[in-house]
Design a binder for these strands. Structure first.
Lengths: 354, 354
DNA sequence: TTGTAAGCGTTATCAT
DNA sequence: ATGATAACGCTTACAA
């Protein structure tokens, strides 16, 4: 009862042509090589029989699988799902399928995942995990695997990338705070090893300078680095807490903190609460990403919104373009971020005489 | 310079054996068919040459791809990432790879994704999307594709499932509220078409009865159904708002709402706020899922925690078992939920004389 | 225990 | 324009 599998051979027999003709008739690429009448007949027969092309067999022959590997550092970080949806949506239209792998921020797992995906012959890779000097990009190149970076830019070397304009985004946050009247502003930076961490940090310093505030390094606390954090160096709430603590210890007069991402901002919330400080009354806090539910936090988080979905769409497009013409010049798309003002920022408290 | 691809043939020549021997030596399954000495030699050579098996070729031959398809209704719902991580973690150990597809709660997209994955010859499917009477399960069976349901149980027909004990979970929430002194408790139910919606609704009624409270249907408002909601029937904040509104309109004396999931609870928050009612002072609210960041909401959400990651691990195990022995009896794992008390529940406000 | 050979379903190259 | 044929890399009866 289990009906025989409908292969190209079966269709060929039913349509009274040779298998190769069926292949041609069904391939958008080679359809022009076949008489329209025959092509139509074949396609009709294929449809009637319910023929479904076998990507595995085709892949073996062509070395192309129509699969794209996607490396995500942490699926639980709400930033990534929208990116993935963008990717899927852009890929879906073209018949490509995304294979998503979580790396849990672990370079070994990332490496391993990459090898697995490469073994499965993905046609290209999208990396959302890249750290500074990451070997993954080099590995992809060595494997001859087209690769595009998203969200984090890496060293911009060798691979195209789709990111947001971190400098601009941080500038938006700083401008907002300055406009509110803040002068003593600190920064909880992301890991130096991540392009976003480095870029936002630099953007922060530059923005302060623009406004005539010279922070020096003193007003920056890293969320990573042995000196400050026992946790793994990462964009996480846990890493944000001690960083905020350092900042507040060093600078009791601080009235605002620009966090390098939303999770770090939540860490700031926690540390402020621990010290009995109210946000935004005592200290304003800004985040970065505008992750889902950021508007639900207490207080709702003022943050910099990234067009996550658009980033996903673009990265997929760039990758597909690169697969189509591997020799093309590398592109570096940079999307404009946008400030979203909510409840975590307010004018600084009037300075009390001590 | 591009080094020749290392195939099984290359290894065979280098090891001075036949390709089939290499295949056997490298296959954990058939290694015993080959002399240990030869096996070791082959493995050594393979390692030295950097041989990487080609799953595409193997898949063509064996009709197994070591890939598992996973259908997720909405990746942006924070409930699913932990499930996925559980799945990946359990699969990873066994060499299987998960292919995740988002369906955006769209049956057509789900159907389409399933066909695509089936065409790619996945060895099995995990469905987190199943609705009541869903054709997907039947389709899998017809395709001869092992399938296991997770999170939502479907009709329990035909497919194994890994879910949480909805009845118990809702009972926990109700018990908690009753213990606080609540008597007039409403329920914002999930879509009837989803097993969780139906089960939690039934659980709610049963729990009330246990405590001697007879709700009748009157105290239940659905988050779906034409009568109440203009939005798509779904577990979403938007769907929760009008449902809460109905409940509050009908029963001004209500002191607590049990929402069928956390997003619906957020919808309740919104509607309460709109009416100038404070949570939990005026109305207590409970959620379901304990999604990430539920502790960050204002107020922090009292909810029923599901072991999401464990569900992922289990569903993967069950599926692998089913792939190994397709004739085995269907299993229905039900994990114990746990109540997490936070700030959205409190004793009911003392009744004011009117 | 190992070698032989066929075949998984497709596509690319060649010949007609 | 279509047909024949080989090959992609691997596994598995079957033979030796």
């Amino acid at each position: 009862m289990a009906s025989k599998r409908v292969t190209i051979q079966v269709v060929a027999r039913a349509a009274r042509v040779h298998a190769s003709t069926v292949s041609r008739a069904l391939s958008p690429h080679a359809r022009q090589l076949v008489t329209p009448a025959v092509a139509d007949r074949v396609r009709a027969v294929a449809g009637r029989l319910g023929y479904v092309p076998d990507p595995v067999a085709a892949g073996l022959r062509t070395r192309r699988t129509a699969m794209i590997g996607v490396l995500i550092p942490d699926l639980a970080n709400p930033v990534f799902p929208p990116i993935l949806r963008g990717i899927e949506s852009a890929l879906g239209e073209t018949g490509y399928t995304a294979i998503i792998a979580n790396t849990d921020n672990d370079p070994d797992r990332a490496r391993q995942a990459l090898e697995r995906l490469a073994a499965r012959r993905v046609d290209g890779m999208i990396l959302a995990t890249v750290t500074h000097g990451d070997p993954l990009v080099a590995r992809c190149r060595k494997l001859g695997l087209p690769v595009v970076l998203v969200n984090r830019g890496g060293d911009a070397a060798g691979a195209s990338s789709v990111t947001n304009d971190d400098t601009r985004g941080i500038a938006l946050a700083v401008e907002h705070l300055v406009a509110l009247g803040h002068q003593r502003i600190g920064h909880v930076a992301g890991p130096r090893g991540l392009s976003t961490g480095a870029a936002r940090r630099a953007g922060f310093v530059a923005a302060l300078r623009t406004h005539g505030i010279d922070a020096g390094d003193a007003l920056i606390a890293e969320a990573a680095g042995d000196a400050l954090v026992a946790e793994a160096a990462s964009y996480s709430i846990a890493a944000g807490i001690p960083a905020a603590a350092v900042l507040l210890d060093r600078h009791p007069g601080l009235t605002a903190i620009v966090a390098a991402n939303d999770l770090l901002a939540l860490g700031c919330y926690d540390e402020l609460a621990r010290r009995g400080l109210a946000c935004p009354r005592d200290v304003s806090v800004t985040g970065y990403n505008d992750m889902p539910f950021a508007d639900r936090f207490a207080p709702p988080l003022t943050t910099v919104r990234i067009a996550h979905r658009a980033m996903g769409v673009e990265v997929a497009r760039v990758l597909l373009a690169e697969i189509a013409s591997p020799r093309a010049r590398k592109q570096h798309l940079r999307l404009e971020p946008e400030l979203v003002v909510r409840g975590s920022t307010a004018p600084p408290r009037v300075m009390e005489p001590r």
